[in-house]
Design a protein around this nucleic acid. Structure first.
Lengths: 354, 354
DNA sequence: CTGTTAGCGCATTCAG
DNA sequence: CTGAATGCGCTAACAG
């Protein structure tokens, strides 16, 4: 109150427009900044009357804490990174929606990070990652970690949850891709198909046990069960995109002995394949059967036989796992396995002349 | 080096695991923290030899600046908020991808914010928005601002760019939705249709000039041009989702005098309508023609006649506009208008008996 | 229950 | 060209 040491402010650069601070609130409420801090954060040891007065003043001034200052003082940032190969692919967008909903509810901020190209990935996971340093948590969607990266992250203070990769160190959300692909392929086999094509993922996979890898494994197993051999010429890379799926299909069907059925490792590729079949003048399932994976919201429109899974739930679950990691007795690392179910619709049928 | 005042550290809570600081780098490089700061940020007035030595040490220790401390000192955060109604809808995911790519390239962080429900929206735009305070920029995708919100944001220090809304205050990226919808409807009219249904957006739109509003306006204008009246019973709300589009279609087609053609304001709704038509046993375009809007990647697979636009480009452009806003002589507010083009495919044809 | 006092890690005048 | 000092806004002991 007394203008004792009033002219203390020397505001140098005047970066922020105005931005009222905790000090301002304290002054107007006639309390110390410490009390304001306690009151506003709902900490104990604050007289009810004091608290409400502080809250009132804060509201009047529409005071908002500077998260950066807070972060600097506490060490927590309440923001988690969400890493996806890309955000404009159906599956990842669904997962992201699930994650965002849960985390936003918990008052966490979500930093979106596409790691499609190697650059983005490096920026996030390399030793000198400036972004990682500002995160309390990290959710990785199909961004596969190498052993080294796992070690680095585990040594770090950041909480991590993976979706699509199982590791010993971090909680995860996965589905049994092998079993699901096995079921999908068996369905084709049961129908009588003997030449079954595979439209798969990226060729340059560095890690053996990624999602497409597991699905492929299920496919091969089903073949073996039926005493069939795997033929490399029945496999094509569709890059998990509609366009890629379409091109892969054209490739497969223009071989000397084309398959009578095709298993695409994602619905988007399957729909691309559907398109290619149409362009090629092939009837589905008359000339060729097609199975997808995902149960994309448009799969039903196409009558696409596919493996259903629930990516939004995967994301929400991953978000919850991450939040749980903050509990005081740290929970044990849990690995959630989501459901999958074969949905037989109308793009599959027995092969011609069967 | 000399242990003069060495035991100065009193590390209270030991929040961060270890996290080497600028001070550590300074010590090892035998310079002051000020010099390290200058050297690492490429500022002038640093001897080349000193700079390289500092850089070397920083690299060895894999030092990374603490963004929060930096932010507190400078006032800039290098992070921009990306607000979307939801992230798991095709259009928004595409825009987000475009935004993310451009901003990540520029070293900016992207904070994802879904404002689907009112809560998320309030959290971002209300007076006491803790998130807004930590942003240098804000990109709003179809998140329409009221006059009050515009004023608040303009008074703020944050740079904003809108996509899908034109305002005087902020740069924007839009398309001429009215003209595009006019063209789409004219196409149907030219084909001979006289009863044209509309599958539109959310019923509870508070603002008149939103995206669905403009498209609807183009539709009505086309009708008037052809001396036709607008009939409320020819309009149904599809909520911009596949499912909603499907339901809206069922609703429209089960009326006493169903339309012979339908214009859906998004491809996702159009595809839902396609599905419904199939369920209802209606042939497309035999019994009913359908036009969409977007040119969703699957539109071609369905042979869907639609209005093409390029959402990823919209996002990238918005990102670039935002980055430009940081230039010293602030650029004048630019309003970019993206292209649209009617793509006639196979879901439209003259009405029966025409 | 409340105020005082140190920092959190970095950027930045202002002297040298 | 470089270093010492100060403050960004807030939280966290530690005394009262």
């Amino acid at each position: 109150m007394t203008p004792t040491d009033a002219p203390k402010r020397r505001t140098r650069t005047r970066t922020r427009a105005d931005a009222i601070t905790i000090e301002e609130v304290a002054r107007r409420a006639n309390v110390s900044v410490a009390t304001v801090s306690r009151a506003l954060r709902g900490l104990p040891n604050v007289a009810p009357s004091t608290r409400s007065r502080v809250e009132q003043v804060a509201r009047d001034l529409s005071y908002q804490v500077d998260t950066y200052a807070s972060r600097l003082a506490t060490g927590r940032s309440d923001t988690v990174g969400l890493a996806v190969p890309n955000i404009n692919s159906w599956y990842f967008a669904q997962v992201a929606a699930g994650v965002e909903a849960v985390l936003a509810d918990a008052g966490m901020d979500v930093l979106l990070h596409s790691v499609g190209d190697g650059a983005g990935r490096a920026r996030l996971l390399s030793g000198q990652s400036p972004v990682r340093r500002r995160l309390d948590g990290l959710i990785l969607i199909d961004v596969l970690l190498t052993a080294t990266e796992i070690r680095t992250l585990a040594a770090d203070r950041v909480h991590v949850v993976t979706v699509g990769q199982w590791t010993e160190e971090f909680p995860s959300v996965t589905v049994d891709n092998r079993a699901a692909a096995l079921a999908a392929t068996r369905h084709l086999l049961d129908l009588g198909h003997r030449r079954i094509g595979l439209i798969g993922g990226s060729a340059h996979t560095s890690l053996p046990f990624d999602v497409p890898g597991h699905r492929r494994q299920g496919y091969v197993e089903a073949l073996l069960e039926a005493s069939l051999d795997y033929h490399a010429d029945l496999e094509a890379n569709g890059g998990f995109s509609v366009k890629g799926g379409s091109e892969a299909m054209v490739h497969l069907m223009s071989e000397s002995r084309p398959p009578s059925a095709v298993f695409a490792l994602s619905d988007e590729m399957a729909m691309g394949a559907l398109q290619a079949a149409g362009d090629l003048g092939l009837a589905v399932p008359g000339d060729v059967s097609i199975v997808g994976f995902d149960d994309h919201e448009l799969a039903r429109v196409f009558g696409l036989t596919t493996v259903r899974q629930d990516p939004e739930w995967h994301g929400a679950t991953a978000g919850r796992l991450l939040l749980g990691l903050g509990d005081d007795p740290p929970p044990e690392i849990s690995h959630v396995v989501g459901d999958t179910r074969l949905l037989v619709r109308s793009t599959t049928a027995p092969p011609r002349g069967h």
